[in-house]
Simulated assay, not measured.
Amino acid sequence: MAKASRNKGATGEREVAALLRDRLGLDLKRRLAQYQAGGHDLDGWDGVCVEVKRHKKATQGDIATWWQQTLEQAQGEIPLLAYRADQQQWRFVIRPGDWGGPTLEPAEVCIEGLVAWVRNGQQMTLEVTA
């Protein structure tokens, strides 16, 4: 992986950690061993596997690939994919059923939707992804 890509990824991980700290009070840390051993990107949220992707663009194909990677890395934990394309806001892919919702089909939410699911088991915005 090129240094610029690693730096962009690390910056994205720090952004998501700060966003989740500010919105949910979580103290998440970058999982530095992931680059050598694989696995999710952020530690500190018990039972949740947080995968972070920061790219120039995010096509539906990219998101589907990243979601599959998140599912594989979750290993019994709740999968959570955070991604952001250049000039865009952070988006999150979750399975609402993991947060008290009606389905395990993936859904994409903004940060407000994620916070609502985590706190209340309900969404503010819900878009089913393919």
Rank of each mutant, 00 (worst) to 15 (best):
G9S: 06
G9W: 06
G9M: 10
T11Q: 14
T11G: 03
T11R: 12
G12N: 02
G12C: 10
G12M: 04
G12K: 02
E13G: 11
E13V: 00
R14S: 12
R14I: 08
E15A: 12
E15M: 09
E15W: 12
E15G: 06
E15V: 01
V16P: 08
V16G: 03
V16I: 04
A17F: 01
A17C: 07
A17P: 06
A18E: 12
L19W: 06
L20E: 04
R21E: 07
R21S: 09
R21V: 03
R23W: 06
R23A: 12
R23Y: 09
L24G: 02
G25E: 09
G25A: 08
L26S: 00
D27T: 15
D27L: 11
D27S: 14
D27N: 13
D27Q: 15
L28K: 04
L28F: 04
L28D: 01
K29A: 13
K29H: 15
K29T: 15
R30L: 05
R30C: 04
R31A: 06
R31T: 05
R31D: 07
R31Y: 12
L32S: 11
A33L: 15
A33E: 15
Q34L: 06
Q34F: 02
Y35D: 05
Y35S: 05
Q36L: 14
Q36T: 13
G38Q: 11
G38K: 13
G38H: 13
G38L: 12
G38R: 13
G38C: 13
G39Y: 10
H40P: 06
H40L: 01
H40A: 03
H40F: 01
D41Q: 02
D41L: 01
D41G: 01
L42G: 00
D43Y: 10
D43P: 03
D43V: 15
D43E: 15
D43S: 12
G44Q: 04
G44R: 00
G44N: 07
W45D: 07
D46I: 10
D46M: 11
D46L: 12
G47C: 14
G47M: 14
V48K: 07
V48F: 07
V48C: 10
V48D: 01
C49W: 10
C49L: 00
C49P: 08
V50Y: 03
E51V: 01
E51Q: 00
E51I: 05
E51W: 05
V52G: 00
K53A: 06
K53T: 08
K53Q: 09
R54E: 07
H55S: 07
H55D: 01
H55A: 05
K56Q: 11
K56I: 14
K56N: 07
A58K: 00
A58L: 09
A58H: 03
A58F: 05
T59N: 08
Q60F: 13
Q60L: 15
Q60P: 15
G61A: 12
G61H: 12
I63P: 10
I63C: 04
I63V: 15
I63Q: 05
I63L: 06
T65K: 14
W66I: 00
W66V: 04
W66L: 02
W67I: 08
Q68D: 08
Q68R: 13
Q69N: 06
L71V: 09
E72K: 09
E72D: 15
E72L: 09
E72Q: 14
Q73F: 07
Q73Y: 04
A74E: 09
A74W: 11
A74P: 09
A74F: 14
A74K: 08
Q75I: 10
Q75W: 01
E77D: 12
E77H: 06
